[in-house]
C-alpha cells in the first residue's frame, strides 16, 4: 500500500519502510484517541508555521488590513531584502564559524576518547575515571555554570570574540558524543580489532581504518545533533559577546525583534531566514536528523 505514494520520491534504497508488508494488521491502526491527538497536533504545529510563511511575504501595511491567515494578495520579498540588509549575512557567517569550529573538533576528540574508553577501559583505572567524569558531565546544565565560564573567558581575554562561544560549546558537546560514539564502537566485533592487531596495526591506525568507517553513521548522527544545538544556542552568545559584529543568528534575531517589534512581517522574515538552513538540511537528510535528535536515548 505504501508503494503507491512512493513514486514521488525517487529516493535511496533506505527509503523503504523496514520489515512490514507481510506483517499482520497492527491493532494500533484503529486508534481514535491517538488519531484525534495526531490531527489536532498537526493543526497546532502547522498553523503558526503557515502564518510565519505567509506573513513574511506581506508588506507591513497589508498585514494590518487583511485576514492574517489569508494568502498575500501581492506577495513581496521586500521583508527579506530588509532583513538581509540588516547585516544578516555576517550573522549567518558567524553562526557557521561557531558551529563548524566547535562541533568538528568536539566530535573528533570525543571519537578518540570513546575509542580509548571502549578499548582500554577494562584495563585502565584512568580511563574508567574519565568515563565517569563524562557521565557526570551529562548532568551539568550549561546555564548553571555560565558565570564561571564568563569569568574564564574574561581572564583568557577572549570576551566578545567568536572563540568565546566556540570553546564552551566544544566542551559541552563532549559528554553526550562520547556516550553515543562509545555505544557504537562497542558494537564493532572484537575479532576485527584482534585481526587488525595481528596485522601489526597501531591503535591509531585501527581507530581510523576500522572504527571510523564502521561507526560513520553514528558520527554523522552525533555531528548533526551537536550542530543543531550549537546553531540554535542563545545563552553563550548572549553572555559572552557584546558587539554586533560577533552576533550569531539567534542573538541577532532577538536584537532585530527588539528593534523592529512593530514590523511583524520583517521579524518573521528574519525568523524564516535563520531557520532556512536547518529546514533545508531537514529536507535533505530527514532520517539522519531525526535519529540525531534522539541520539543517546535511542541508539
Amino acid at each position: 500500500m505504501a508503494t503507491m505514494l512512493d513514486s514521488r520520491t525517487p529516493a535511496p534504497v533506505a527509503e523503504k519502510p523496514p520489515v512490514k508488508a507481510r506483517r499482520r494488521i497492527n491493532p494500533l491502526q484503529w486508534n481514535v484517541a491517538g488519531g484525534l491527538a495526531g490531527w489536532l497536533w498537526l493543526a497546532i504545529v502547522v498553523v503558526p508555521i503557515y502564518w510565519i510563511a505567509v506573513t513574511s511575504l506581506k508588506l507591513q501595511d497589508d498585514y494590518y488590513d487583511a485576514n492574517p491567515l489569508a494568502l498575500p494578495t501581492d506577495p513581496t520579498l521586500e521583508n527579506y531584502r530588509f532583513v538581509l540588509e540588516s547585516d544578516f549575512a555576517r550573522y549567518f557567517t558567524n553562526s557557521v564559524i561557531v558551529t563548524v569550529g566547535s562541533v568538528g573538533p568536539a566530535v573528533l576528540v570525543s571519537f578518540m576518547a570513546a575509542y580509548a574508553i571502549i578499548r582500554g577501559g577494562a584495563g585502565s583505572r584512568f580511563l574508567r575515571t574519565v568515563n565517569g567524569l563524562f557521565l557526570m558531565g551529562l548532568a551539568i546544565p550549561l546555564q548553571a555554570v555560565i558565570i564561571p565560564i564568563y569569568l574564564i573567558i574574561i581572564r583568557i581575554q577572549m570576551y566578545d570574540t567568536l572563540g568565546a562561544i566556540i570553546l564552551p560549546s566544544l566542551a559541552f558537546a563532549i559528554p553526550l558524543s562520547v556516550l553515543v560514539l562509545g555505544n557504537f564502537i562497542r558494537d564493532v566485533p572484537k575479532e576485527l580489532f584482534e585481526s587488525m592487531r595481528m596485522d601489526g596495526a597501531t591503535e591509531w591506525g585501527t581507530l581510523w581504518r576500522l572504527a571510523f568507517p564502521l561507526t560513520r553513521p553514528a558520527l554523522v548522527t552525533v555531528t548533526i545533533y551537536q550542530g543543531l544545538t550549537v546553531w540554535n544556542g542563545f545563552v553563550l552568545p548572549l553572555i559572552l559577546t557584546q558587539s554586533p559584529e560577533q552576533r550569531t543568528l539567534p542573538l541577532a534575531l532577538w536584537e532585530f525583534q527588539g528593534q523592529y517589534s512593530v514590523n511583524i512581517p520583517a521579524v518573521l522574515a528574519a525568523v524564516v531566514l535563520t531557520t532556512l538552513p536547518i529546514l533545508t538540511l531537514y529536507v535533505i537528510g530527514r532520517r539522519q536528523l531525526l535519529s540525531g535528535l534522539t541520539a543517546g536515548f535511542g541508539k
Binding site: 580509548a116 582500554g120 584495563g123 580511563l127 574519565v130 591503535e203
Partner: peptide
C-alpha cells in the same frame, strides 16, 4: 587489547 597505555593518550 594491546595494553591500555597505548590508547590512554587518545582520551
Amino acid at each position: 587489547a594491546g595494553g591500555s597505555g597505548s590508547v590512554s593518550w587518545m582520551a
